[in-house]
Structures are given as C-alpha cells and as structure tokens.
C-alpha cells in the first residue's frame, strides 16, 4: 500500500513539472504532424505510402502495405525512444535527489516504510509517468496509422511495454546516480555521459578498448563493464524488430534486467547506510 501511495505521489510530483507537459506537448505535435503527413495512395501498380505527399515506398500490393507501414513505425519508435532517453531522463532525474533533500527525507523515513520501499515507490512512479507518455504516443500513432493507412498492427501497441522496460532499465542507473550524488544535475550528466560516450565505446569495445591491450584480464574487465550497464543499443534494435515482426533477441533485455537490478540494489544499499 505504501508503494502505491509513493507511486501516486511521484506521478503528482511529475505532473506538476513543466517538463512533463513539454514531453506530452511534443508527443501531441508529432502525432498531429504524422496524422497530416502520412497517407496511402492507390496507384495502378499497387499501394504507395506517402509522407508529406512524397512517395516513401515502392508500389506494393495491398497485403504487403503493412510491411512498409511497419518500417515507418519502427523508425518512428526509434525516434521516440531517443526522445524519451533525452527528455525522460531530464524530466525524472530529480525525483530521487528531491526526495533526499533535508526536511523532505525526514518526513518519509519517519513513516513506517523501509528505505528500499521508498526507493522502489519513487522508481516505479517515475517509470509509470514515462510509461504513460510512451503509451499515449504509441496509442496515438497506432490510431493514426490505422485510420490513415488501414494498418492496425498490435505490435506497435505492444512495443510500448518494451520501450517502458528499456526506460526502466536505464532509470535504475539514474536512481543509482541520484542516490549516490543527491544531485539532479550530476545524475543527468553521469547518465548522458554513459549514453553518449561510455555506452558507445563499450558497445564498440572490439574496435576501441580491445586495441589497447590483448591481455585477457583487461578484456574481461572491459566486458564486465559492458554487461554491467543496460544494453540500450541492443534493446533499441530489438524494439524495432518487434514492430517489424522479425524474431527478437531477448539477450539484451535479460542483461539490462540484470544491470537494472544491480544498479537498483546498489542504490538501496547506499540509501540504507546513509545518515540524514
């Protein structure tokens, strides 16, 4: 029950922030633009998918139109995920540091809840807030593609769950940084540092870090680091596969689940030991 109260409080907290309205506003604008831009035209040699009146797919028979639409949906979902990473982290990174501020944390910890429950409630609340935004956008996109192209693909809706999971894995890392540093700015910077620099280097470690040494221990440590962090690129690739109904590789999701659990546990340990 306490966790549900904390989720509700976090949703309220985030809904009071202008960043969440900006996120919802951008989603709405993109959906409106999409509704105006995307269309299907029937031509003599088949159906053509158009964007802003420009043909974006070769003429295909009606039964194959879904494939072209799925490709567009996958591209859109990829763009959405990048947006969610950038904006979602920015919008929610303050949840933990704000809770840990003097005068606020006292009110929470003096209640009959354990510290890990407190962390879990806040974590779930932030993930739920971003999840609702993802559902809003993808449900809107599903309607647009259904109404404008006649393609009602359930996989686009299901990808909302996958994408929320991806954010949840990443957010565990944000929670860790937030608990450790107690600073919103530091959490955002460290997360972006991983996403834009370290993540890329580790993902392409065979072309970068492996060149420094052939030592097996060194490479083992590098691999350990790689698997310690959520597999953002791997999950993103497989998210697109889900929409395109290609067989998915679940390994990046499992690894990210493990990574998220490690980061969350580490945050819980730090919080448990800390004096306020």
């Amino acid at each position: 029950m306490s966790i549900l109260v904390l989720i509700r409080l976090t949703l309220r907290e985030l809904s009071s922030k202008v960043t969440m309205y900006i996120l919802a506003g951008i989603s709405t604008l993109v959906l409106l633009g999409l509704a105006l831009a995307v269309s299907v035209d029937s031509m003599a040699d088949g159906e053509v998918l158009k964007l802003f009146g420009q043909q974006v797919s070769p003429p295909v028979p009606l039964e194959e139109l879904a494939k072209a639409v799925q490709q567009m949906q996958a591209g859109l979902a990829g763009g959405l995920f990048t947006g969610i990473i950038l904006f979602g982290v920015f919008a929610t990174a303050g949840v933990i540091p704000d809770m840990l501020e003097r005068g606020t944390v006292d009110l929470y910890i003096s209640k009959p809840i354990s510290r890990w429950e407190l962390l879990l409630g806040k974590y779930c609340g932030a993930v739920a807030a971003i999840g609702l935004n993802i559902i809003y956008f993808l449900a809107g996109a599903w309607l647009v593609f259904g109404l404008r192209c006649g393609v009602w693909d359930i996989n686009l809706l299901l990808s909302a769950l996958t994408m929320t999971f991806m954010f949840a894995a990443l957010y565990a890392m944000v929670v860790f940084f937030g608990t450790w540093t107690r600073s919103t700015a530091a959490s955002i910077i460290l997360t972006y540092l991983y996403l834009f620099i370290l993540g890329g280097i580790l993902h392409n470690r065979e072309l970068t870090l492996y060149l420094i040494s052939e030592n097996a221990v060194y490479r083992g440590v590098i691999d350990g680091f790689y698997y310690l962090f959520p597999q953002i690129s791997g999950m993103q690739e497989n998210g697109a596969k889900q929409i395109m109904q290609v067989e998915m590789d679940w390994k990046p999701f499992l690894q990210s689940f493990f990574s998220g659990s490690v980061f969350f546990l580490a945050a819980a340990v730090i919080l448990k030991r800390r004096d306020f």
């Binding site: 306490s2 309220r12 009959p112």
Partner: peptide
C-alpha cells in the same frame, strides 16, 4: 505508533494541505 514534526520540514509544494495529510497519513499506515 510514532509521529514526527521535523525542524524545517518541506512538504511537497505541489500538494494542498488536505493532500499532504492524505498522502502522509496513508504512508503512516
């Protein structure tokens, strides 16, 4: 079974007085 009023407490600014009581009352069990 314990109540606490901290020094310089900071209730979430986005809540009304009633919501503060409701939220922290629920957290208190």
């Amino acid at each position: 079974r314990v109540g606490y009023l901290p020094e310089n407490h900071r209730f979430p600014a986005y809540l009304t007085g009633e919501q503060v009581m409701m939220s922290f009352g629920s957290l208190a069990g």
